[in-house]
Amino acid sequence: MKQLGRLLPLSALLLLLAGCGEVNLSALDPQGPVAEMQLSLIKLSLYIMIIVIVVVFVIFAIALIRFREKPGDTHIPKQVEGSKTLEIIWTTIPVILLLILAIPNVMDTFTLANVEADENSITVNVTAHQFWWEFEYPDHDIVAGQDMYIPTNTKILVNLEASDVMHSFWVPALAGKQDNVPGITNEMWLEASHPGVYKGKCTELCGEGHWLMDFRVISVERDVFDKWATNMIGPEQEPASQLAETGREVFQASCIGCHAVGGVGGNPASGGPDLTNFGEREVIAGFLEFNEENLEKWLRYPAETKPGNKMPPFNHLNEDDMKALIEYMKGLKVLD
């Protein structure tokens, strides 16, 4: 019985592996070749390990049942020194099991490190900041903040850098992580098999805002990506309404020193994310649901909303200016 009880978690484990967690966030539900390769390696290692677990648990359970002290039993068990045969067996078999795992692992490790460009591939330089992400596309001469657009079924070569402390770039559904290390450029590649929005996270403790340092990888068809890339270069579209026009003036007075729009403004040294396509984000500041209320909260009280971030508060804006600014920011789109 005890033995069955111990095996329960294992069967639960297998069920869970069949698919679990939120789609587009879970490493157990891969959406691209890199994450698929990693999941199959995880499964291989798990199956080998289950063999080990079962063998140990069975011997263990039998020993506990057969050799427990019975009432009144006072015999002295035979003092066995050991067994050469057994030692050889339980040295050799694990070595073989490990080889079965080690060989594909070494092959995969080299495959994943192969960041050679092919005719379609696109390079993205990812710079991590406390606590947001910057995506530079050197071939297209554009910079985007927070949302990393990529064409579907295309090898994306990712160069990772950091501007302050260490961070780590992880999109579980697409690829395992590599670290953003100050002073060092790390390379990796990933690919999305379908259009979709994949959640990314920082996985290296980087300060107070670490847990909110999320980003999105947005995979779109090639033609959509090309449109996106063309429009990101700027110039920005004219605001659609008088209110938005006023908002633009507020933006140019208050925000443009740190945040670029359509290639104008921003500050590479200490600025914040590019906002050219801000109106197309799913979330504000990496985590807040995109609506006017949250945007106002973020603009007025950034420190309280996302502790540790560097954006100054804009609580001094009056109601009208704030409304206009929000209207303008909602209209910052490149894919319409």
Binding site: Q38, T111, L112, S168, W170
Partner: peptide, 16 residues
């Protein structure tokens, strides 16, 4: 799980 973590290519998913 230590052996699983030692699998470097899979470790990119497990790490941190």
């Amino acid at each position: 799980t230590g052996v699983m973590l030692a699998t470097s290519a899979a470790n990119y998913q497990f790490h941190d």
